[in-house]
């Protein structure tokens, strides 16, 4: 296959990028705005994805299940935050990974309900029908023989851009000013009466809801869900995107997602004179080097503001 001509393949890579973009926008709220080092972010995506999957496979209409899945992810954020947000930053980071792993191990073990390692099939519910009707509609508009992946690609990116715009809009509010204060110095924020704990909880829940939404699109893309889709590595890839694009920069998130998604999924289809599993390993070496290089030489990322970066 000539990869540059394989439109369907690029549509897939870009859809993956879009899902990552939404996922990392959630991280921006938590890490960039509030300074919460959430290393268990993938768990919220898992909750969005599996909630949707479990609801639709149990007869709940997809259109109803989507908002519930997002809300459940937000509730998970609150439930995780209540006991853990009082911990210091490094402990919070470890505990959030641990919580994510507990969830994944749980999903893996409850095979009767979740399919376990065999996967939860047909988790995307009515999406296939929606996709077909959209293709028919586009066909009617004269866009014939479009690739089947186009509708999801478009919708994912429209959503990512809308979420980014929403966050930028919120970003101008005094609410975000209080988040930034919490990020920099909790004591200073508390000393002038800002409810530190509540603000952190809100940021965690908002970020979790956005990750839940990413989980919904992930489910549409994959149709079947497996526990190994939600290993901690996904969170770390999210952090690579965050760091590359710039902590605090929504635009950087979008660009970072495309670059990283290309490195992860895209290079697979370029011709290298070495074995495929070796290429797979090198992809992640490159991602590791990007993280290291950025942290060493440009910690604010490509588009972050150096003056506003806080990494203590």
């Amino acid at each position: 296959m000539d990869p540059l001509l394989a439109f369907g393949f690029w549509a897939y890579v870009l859809t993956v990028a879009g899902v990552y973009a939404i996922f990392v926008l959630g991280l921006q709220v938590q890490v960039g705005d509030t300074g919460l080092l959430n290393f268990g972010h993938v768990a919220f995506m898992a909750i969005g994805a599996y909630s949707l999957g479990l609801m639709v496979t149990n007869g709940i209409p997809t259109i109803v299940a989507i908002p519930i899945a997002v809300v459940l992810a937000a509730i998970a954020g609150v439930l995780l935050g209540l006991p853990t947000l009082r911990l210091r930053g490094d402990y919070f980071a470890i505990v959030t990974i641990a919580a994510g792993e507990i969830l994944r191990i749980l999903v893996q073990n409850r095979q009767d309900e979740t399919g376990g390692t065999l996967g939860l099939r047909r988790a995307s519910g009515a999406w296939r029908d929606w996709n077909d009707s959209m293709l028919d509609w586009l066909d009617g508009l004269g866009l014939r023989d479009l690739d089947r992946r186009v509708p999801l690609l478009v919708i994912t990116w429209v959503t990512a851009v809308l979420v980014a715009l929403l966050l930028m809009h919120i970003g101008r509010s005094p609410w975000r000013r209080t988040l930034r204060a919490v990020r920099e110095n909790e004591d200073a924020a508390a000393a002038v009466g800002k409810p530190v704990f509540r603000l952190k909880l809100q940021a965690l829940a908002l970020g979790a809801a956005i990750a839940g939404l990413a989980g919904v699109y992930f489910t549409f893309l994959q149709t079947s869900l497996y526990p190994e889709n939600f290993e901690p590595i996904v969170t770390f890839i999210g952090f690579a995107i965050l760091i590359l694009g710039g902590i605090g920069s929504y635009f950087g998130t979008v660009l970072g997602s495309i670059v990283i998604a290309f490195i992860i999924s895209g290079v697979r289809f370029l011709d290298f004179p070495i074995a495929e599993d070796k290429v797979a390993a090198l992809r992640f070496v490159v991602i590791g080097l990007i993280i290291m290089g950025m942290m060493a030489f440009r910690p604010q990322g490509l588009f972050g503001k150096k003056e506003e970066l806080h990494l203590d």
Binding site: G89, F236, F239, G288, L289, I291, M292, L311, D312
Partner: peptide, 13 residues
């Protein structure tokens, strides 16, 4: 601290 932590994640990769 966070900068070093994130750097170590890159090194781990």
């Amino acid at each position: 601290v966070m900068q070093l932590l994130l750097l170590s994640i890159g090194l781990a990769f």
